[in-house]
Design a protein around this nucleic acid. Structure first.
Lengths: 156, 156
DNA sequence: GAATATACTTTGAACTTCAAAACATATTGA
DNA sequence: TCAATATGTTTTGAAGTTCAAAGTATATTC
């Protein structure tokens, strides 16, 4: 006992702290980048649309909603607003008029690129404070944790 | 180049993935624990109040709002609802009647204990897949990252 | 005792979310 | 064909979350 409990408590407090800090920093970065118009969640919608486009995925409402793990109704509302703000465009499929496809405007693509740069910066910052070996262990550990959660969440 | 970019890309994808998985798992755990009445954010308010109590911190509105990194107005609204739901209690300081102190009810403490068990489980899970050395490096790295963000966010 | 500072609350507005109902279009089977 | 059913999206109603700014109450300072 003792050492193990200390480790657990430390890990927990660091994890919670880093978690909150990343969230806040990410939120802050949006304003700084000049897209004061956008919330973090809206940015993630734009990101999902852009990623779908890059990967040649079928960018219909349902697919994007699923990739974001939100309901179709929620997505409709978010996209309606983002269309009004000029970041996304909706167009109905000619063949199957039930389907709505969503794509980014140039402005949307620029916002997404900005957000990508934030992520790059953050990663660069993290790597800058770890040495070679620590970085390797850290990345490996994160990979393990990621797989672990994936396994845990799919089986239940 | 090459290796560095690979590391950065890997770290980014793992980080994003773990981040989302933790959020999702945490949200899921609330319902499972039987507090269907509470959102994740409400639980975090209760947690901040309980932690403040344990640490003998002055549990006034301002201190709790700051620890949660939300505005006082936001906290007021959250606490008013949580008081109505029976998780928290507010009482004005006798000496300085401007100050409102917030404390958990028994129900609030029970909800927090439940949430604490979720965190314990998660930490145990993470530690179980890392060996002794990896765990030490991982914790140290997280601590560095936490300090780094704290420094970055306070200075700007 | 008036001016100022401090601590919290209220207000108004915008965003986020969901479940369920509604709508539009497509497919299927008699 | 056309009625039933399925599919894809939108609307609706309700509740949460958040902030900035204005408001209220109390305390401190000069």
């Amino acid at each position: 006992m003792g050492f193990t409990e200390d480790k657990a408590a430390l890990l927990n407090s660091f994890l919670v702290e880093v978690f909150n800090q990343i969230l806040k920093t990410e939120e802050l970065s949006i304003d700084l980048e000049g897209f004061k118009n956008l919330s973090l969640k809206e940015l993630h919608v734009i990101e999902a649309v852009c990623i779908g486009g890059e990967q040649g995925r079928d960018n219909c409402s349902a697919a994007i909603a699923e990739s974001l793990r939100i309901t179709p109704g929620t997505l409709t509302i978010a996209v309606a607003l983002l269309e009004k703000k000029g970041y996304l465009i909706r167009h109905r499929d000619e063949k199957d008029k039930r389907i709505v496809r969503i794509s980014p405007t140039d402005l949307g693509r620029r916002a997404n690129a900005c957000h990508g740069r934030f992520h790059d910066e953050m990663i660069k910052d993290i790597l800058s404070i770890l040495n070679e070996d620590e970085a390797a262990v850290f990345i490996r550990a994160l990979g393990c944790i990621s797989s672990f959660f994936r396994a845990k969440n799919t089986k239940s």
